[in-house]
């Protein structure tokens, strides 16, 4: 399946958001996720089905002003 993860196009087999995070070695309570510009809560990642062409953002705390 083709996905765009943090702006990069990837070809990857991951049916759910949780599976995608695991496949890409993303791990931690401090991560926030959005699919197609909408927040996907931590608790919903395991059930969230991904589709071809989905745009996924994986964010974490950074310096800010």
């Amino acid at each position: 399946m083709k996905l765009i993860v943090n702006g990069k196009a990837l070809e990857i087999d991951a049916s759910t958001l949780a599976a995608l995070l695991a496949a890409l070695d993303y791990e931690g309570d401090w991560l926030a996720t959005a699919v197609n510009s909408d927040l996907v809560h931590k608790a919903n990642r395991a059930d969230f089905q991904l589709s071809d062409g989905d745009r996924i953002e994986i964010l974490s705390p950074m310096q800010g002003g």
Binding site: W30, P61, Q63
Partner: peptide
Amino acid sequence: TVSLRREMAGGRAGENFWSLIRALGTRILP
């Protein structure tokens, strides 16, 4: 004040920063 930015696959930049901020004991304004 803090922000959110894209994390690298397998990266821990966010974790390191978040640990530092929590240790300050201040309130957070994202």
